[in-house]
Design a protein around this nucleic acid. Sequence first.
DNA 1: CGATTTTGACCGGCGC
DNA 2: GCGCCGGTCAAAATCG
Length: 366
Amino acid sequence: MDYSSSLVDVSLDLNLNPLRRNDDRPASALSVKKEWSFGVPSAPANFMGLGINVSSVKEEESTAGALVEELNRVSAENKKLTEMLTVMCENYTALRNQLMDHMARNSHPTDEAAAVEEEVEKEQSPSSLSPASSRKRKSDSSNNDNYNLPLATNNNNGASESSSTDEESFKRPREEVIKAKISRVYVRTEPSDTGLIVKDGYQWRKYGQKVTRDNPCPRAYFKCSFAPSCPVKKKVQRSVEDQSIVVATYEGEHNHPHPSTPEAAAATASSSGRGLAIARSPSLAAGPATMTLDLTKSKPNVASTSARNVVAPSPKPLAGGIDGPEIQQLLVEQMATSLTKDPNFTAALAAAISGRMLQRNHSERW
DNA sequence: CGATTTTGACCGGCGC
DNA sequence: GCGCCGGTCAAAATCG
């Protein structure tokens, strides 16, 4: 489920700056950012060095009034965006479940670049790893009871422990606590590519390689680079049936942010939890699973890395109050920029919108 | 020089 | 108990 492969250019025009003082400027709300000179708090006359020449006091007063109005509008828009995001996440989850359901019915991995196989298929799939295996290991059977899609559980470390029915069928109670989430990912590779690399964004350390009985292709064993704090392991082996398909079996859930997500790193760094935090939960080769966006608690010195770089240099961004309308506007623009620059966000948004359209079509049709 | 990969040895579970 | 097998360990080799 690689969203980036089907990226739709969703530009988020928040229309944040309808009050263009210089009408010959481009109307894009996001483009104006480049003209600002940040980190000049000691320039009250020209509004933080926005490059706006305020010629008269009257003009300034009217501008202030307009800014208040603008602030109210932006706040309302923030609220609206938050609600939209909530709906978006719900739709994303619904869409994902639909996809999983669909994939569960098509047992063969087909031509998709990557596909996650559910446990139901495991026993029946023609491309399962051990079709001829007569020996059934105890650990395997216990794992089978427990096959689960990490994608479906975004919470870390079994915050959503599986159902009691799973536990009832589980033979070894001692391991219930630490039972791992297992999923399988099929990745179609280039025929020329003979390596066992599955690019899922996480960093792995190879700790073993074995040639197994039922597959001439060696199986590689990987641990998450964050081990031992992160218990996730994966096994990678080419499919017996189609050697252009690499089968990656993941065990466990990452208990750390996705390393390739700068927002996640920023969120981790700013553990205060204030303001804008876009964190991708640990997921497996499947793009964004959740995005937490709190636009309601925005503070100037948080938000994404880029925004922080801009605003953070002065601990007190504006003398006389950090909630000034300029700061808020600046922040909102920064957040908008950060969001629109993030392909994950735009992709998730596109997915949510398409999901919603799908939903609407459904409701209209049925 | 530290991090990562390679690879043979080792271990434990399972079937016979 | 023995042998097979998958999984893991750890020393050596390699890489950046």
